[in-house]
Amino acid sequence: MARKNEHYEESLLGRLDRWTQSGESGLDQRMMDDLASPPPPAASLPQKELERRMDRDDRMKHHMLLQEQATYDRIRTWGSVRGSRFFRRAYIVLAVLFCLALIAVLLRATATLPPFGNPDNPMHNDVARRYIEDGMEETGAVNLVAGMILDYRAFDTLGESNVLFTAVCAVLILLRISKEHSDATAMLELEADDRMYEPQDDLILQTMVRLLVPLILLFGIYVILNGHISPGGGFSGGAVMGAGLILYLNAFGFEKAERFFTFRTFQTVSVISLSFYALSKSYSFFTGANHLPSIIQTGIPGKIFSAGLIPYLNIAVGLVVCCTMYALYTLFRKGDL
């Protein structure tokens, strides 16, 4: 700014301006002198009267300023007080109307759909017929849904497992608190938030967990291993096992849980499972898909070692889901694995 001023004063326009301001005559100079000197009548007035006048002027000025300020404030805060309330109400009304209109449109569309539970609906077409009538021979799985998602559409399930793994990675990036970079008091605060007001070693919970967790884990393993024979599979069994591990963690705390599940465990198990899945399915893609002969036998449907790759893929998916559930829980609770 100062630099600009200098420029201006040196420039032609600045000099012209100064010349018109001061002029050749000393008139302006005299006027300035007059203004600078104190007004003569003020000195003749008594001191008290002078103060009173000044006071009155000040108060009037102050009052006008206040009024101006209030007007400005009203205009400026309208958007955040009354205006925001007005927009909020309008938004609520519009949102409810929009949702009601959406429901009405969807209901109108639903009325034209084919009836519920009717076997002749167009969606029960040849694809479903093929899965039901030839699925058991082609995949060896008694559970046709398992045969469908782990054989016909196994790439889809690989994508799902990868979505879960990616979700854990995203949560890890967002929530992980590194122990090296945060100081001791912050860690203590986190610990207090987590466990201070909870019973530390609850005897009832620990006794029940000693009984229950082996059974829960066994049930999860059963559901995973029987995924191709009975209802179940990698996703449900993995969720059961993850829930068992979370129950164990809640009863015994992080010190004991970290003996068998750390970040390294999670990394190793997830990566090995996903790699196994990807490799075995790409093998099947190159040899078995499109009715090319496959080396892997489907076996006798109903036996535990049957259905080709499906039981192994179920195990891989189950391990990924189990690790994911446990990792998500510990990340949300402690910020670390």
Binding site: N121, Y131, M136, P231
Partner: peptide, 16 residues
């Protein structure tokens, strides 16, 4: 579909 079972093959019945 009304009156039908979950798609898990029971007793070797493989019909739509």
């Amino acid at each position: 579909i009304s009156g039908r079972k979950a798609p898990i093959v029971v007793d070797g019945i493989e019909q739509m």
